[in-house]
Structure formats: structure tokens, C-alpha cells
Design a protein around this nucleic acid. Structure first.
Lengths: 231, 231
DNA sequence: GAATTCAAAATTGTATACAGTTTGGAATTC
DNA sequence: GAATTCCAAACTGTATACAATTTTGAATTC
């Protein structure tokens, strides 16, 4: 039987996970020999995977100097969240206009089913996966593969920003509980009523609020660690 | 002095240009040895470039079978144009809200300066470059690098769809002249007034109209050449 | 003649070698 | 001691070789 997944795919996924889990410091140069040993592949497939990550914006590349972990700056975080608003709100608009009634019903049922898990989730990763899942499914309702691809890419890059945010929320427990699904419910209500304006306004507010929290969380978390070059 | 551009970059650009210029037939398998000879590089940097193009959605990849030119289907074209609406309308919204007055004035002057060129452009490529330039500059006004990156990617993949569209328009000269900037003027008016609703409505209409034309043009152009797998 | 088998040819997958470049630090200069 | 030079070590860039897999097409079977 033929293999299903290529070695480059495997290495790519491993690198993406490492990036999301803080394995690389911002602006850190990635040593290809060391990485290839850790990942159990030679430099040839490793570099193919690294090139994919550059194309997707996870890493940067400098000729004759290699691949670097992309640093987190406030303006970069702003850009990523604004792009999420663009993708998700347009997907929601499309979904309001043409998603089959059955899909919306299923989405609603999904949120009901997940609510207890949200409330009881203890692991941050678990909570984050649940939240990402809501947004992914929302964009799926649009039926647009490009919007799905773009969201997946953004989520991959935003993931560790959100982990920092959730960590802070849990530590402080200020106001909103981490597992609060009320914002998601508001979006759903608009979608069920197929009211583009109400739905997108709710979603936009939700994402922008999260952005503000996340920016602040990152600022606090990193302010004592290093000073990234901002421009 | 150090080199500025890497070999992989050069190969990548060459491949992208080839893809945009119909050098590869849809679903055609790309022969690595042949390509590496044409491009004057060994398979190692070639494959790195090909992996970037896969990550960006220009090509597809199958394990042990190599890289393939992505086929054009109506639903793929719809997805790309919808994604453009998402990116450009949100960028325009942001620009309405916070682009410096000076940048908007400069943008307006740019459109005035370009109008004669639009009218007189004879080469399709020239016309297309002018049109892409308008949209790129619009998104630049948002100051968001991620939106710019996403638009650049979409434009790269949409480019040859638009060439087909422009070709048909020129051949038929039905109704609208190819170099019509009135739709762009409407968008600009909304932006100058900083009226998000007016501006985004004009832009959305413009892109969606172009999508309809392009879909039809591709349908006609390809209907006798081959039948792509649609699903 | 359509379907099947199978081996040769073509093609992809990747480890490795080595050339070219950058980096780090010791030696030197001021 | 700070700045500069320079060389060795480390690292990246890529051509190449060869293993693994797929494709092709001729031979065979029904």
C-alpha cells in the first residue's frame, strides 16, 4: 500500500507545532543541521518544509543566513487580527446569504453540545482548540475553500498569541471567564435570523475585543523578556 | 558585495510567471528534471520553490507523483473572487477609518494620473497591471501587511483568469470598454468622504461584476478545450 | 481486441558531499 | 581597553548519486 503522508508534510507539521509551542525564540535563527537531527530527516526535505512555512508567513528567510522565527510585534498582532475580521466576517456574510438551513441547524446543535465542554475545560490547549473549532466551522458554512485556507493559516500564526492571552485570563480570572461562549451565541443568533448586519457586528466586536486583550497580554508577557524591533 | 536575491527566489518568480502565462496546462504534472534544465538550477532549489507555490495555492502536490498545475473550476474562481472581496473591503473599511488624509489625496492624484494610460493602453498585460495596481494601492492604504500579502497571493492566482476576461472584452468590445475607470472613481469618492458603507458597496459591486464576467469568459474559453473535474 | 502482467524506463525522494558565505573569537593595532 | 584584522569553524546553497516508487508499453492471456 502506498504511503499517505509525505515526509515533508510530517516535518512541516512538526515545525509548525514547535513554532506554536514557543520552541523558537523570536528572531532566532534556525539551525538546519540541528533541526534535521531532531526531526529525523536530512536537510533536503527539511528545507522544503521551511520554504512552505516562509510562504505562509510563519518564518522569515535571509539569503545565506537561513530561516528565522518571526518576531511578535504589536503591529503584527494587529494585522493578524484585522485579517481574521476580514476573512470571518465575509464568510459569515456569505453563510447568512446561502448556507443551507440544515447546516445552520447543525452548527447550532454543535454549539449546544460544546457548551458544557467549554465550561469544564481545564487545559488551555483544549479551550483554545474549542474556540478555534467554532471559528473554523463558521467559515466552513460559507463553503469557500480559500477563506478556510486563509483562516487556518492565520490561526496557526495567532495560536501562541492566544495561548499567552488565555494564560493571563486564567491567572487573573478578571471579569470574563475563559470559557465564555456568550459572544459566540450572539453571532449564532444573527446567523439563524440570517441578519448579516447583526451577525457580522457581533463577530467583529468579538474578534476585536479578543485582539485588544491579546495585544495587552503579549505586551505584559514579553515586556520583561526582550524588546522586539518595531517599525 | 553580497547577493540580494536567492536562487530559490529567482526560480520561484520564474515559475509563478510561467503559471500566469499558461505555460502549464491544468492538472498537468510538472517534470522536475525538465524544469530544472529550463530554469538553470538543480532539482534541490527548484523543489524548494515548488513547495512555496504549493503553500500559496498555485500548485498542488501528490506524494511520489510530484507537483501539478491547479485546474480552473467555476467554484475555484468564485472562491478566489469572494476572498478578494473579503480582503479588499475590509482594507477599504480600515482605510476609511484611519488612512492619513495625505495618503488619500495621493491616491486620488494617482488615479487622475493613470486615467489617460487606462484609456490608451493597448496591451492587455499593461491594462491588467494598471488595474492590479489600483487594488494593491487601495489595500496599502490600510497599512495592514497581512491584507497586502493575501491580496498579492490572490492576484497572482487570479491573473490568468483576468487575462482571459480582458481578452474576451477586447475581442467583443461589448458595452464597457476595457479601460473603464468609472467603478474605481466611485470607490474613491466613498473613500474621500470616508463613508465606509458607500465605499465598500461600490467596491463589492465592482469586484462581483468582474467575477461574473470572468467566470463566463473562462467558461467560454475552456468549454471546448477540456472538461475540468468539478465537485 | 480488451484486459492483464511484468519488466524496463522514467520520475520522485532524500542523503550526502562539497563549494561558498557568514560567524565568532583570537591576535593585533591604536 | 576599544577597534580592527584575519583565520578557522560553523553554516548555508546546491549539485549529484542512488534508492524507492510510479509510469509506460510490449508481451501474454482470455
Amino acid at each position: 500500500m502506498a504511503k499517505r503522508e509525505s515526509n515533508v508534510d510530517r516535518v512541516y507539521e512538526a515545525l509548525r507545532r514547535m513554532a506554536a509551542d514557543f520552541a523558537f525564540k523570536p528572531d532566532q535563527r534556525l539551525n538546519e543541521s540541528a533541526l534535521s537531527e531532531v526531526l529525523g530527516a536530512s536537510r533536503t526535505p527539511l528545507r522544503e518544509a521551511l520554504n512552505r512555512l516562509v510562504a505562509e508567513g510563519f518564518l522569515t528567510f535571509q539569503i545565506n543566513r537561513g530561516f528565522f522565527c518571526r518576531p511578535l510585534t504589536p503591529s503584527y498582532i494587529l494585522d493578524l487580527y484585522e485579517a481574521r475580521v476580514a476573512i470571518e466576517c465575509e464568510a459569515l456574510r456569505i453563510a447568512c446569504q446561502r448556507a443551507p438551513e440544515a447546516d445552520i441547524t447543525a452548527f447550532s446543535a454543535y454549539l449546544d453540545r460544546m457548551e458544557p465542554e467549554y465550561e469544564s475545560a481545564t487545559e488551555l490547549e483544549e479551550l483554545l482548540t474549542l474556540d478555534e473549532s467554532f471559528h473554523n466551522r463558521l467559515v466552513q458554512l460559507s463553503g469557500n475553500s480559500e477563506l478556510q485556507r486563509m483562516l487556518k493559516n492565520l490561526n496557526g500564526r495567532i495560536r501562541y498569541i492566544r495561548l499567552i492571552d488565555l494564560k493571563r485570563m486564567r491567572d487573573q480570572a478578571e471579569g470574563r471567564a475563559p470559557g465564555d461562549v456568550s459572544a459566540h451565541r450572539l453571532v449564532l443568533q444573527g446567523l439563524v435570523a440570517r441578519d448579516v448586519e447583526v451577525a457580522t457586528r457581533a463577530l467583529r466586536n468579538h474578534i476585536e475585543k479578543r485582539r485588544e486583550e491579546a495585544t495587552e497580554a503579549v505586551r505584559i508577557a514579553f515586556s520583561q523578556l526582550y524588546v522586539p524591533d518595531e517599525d
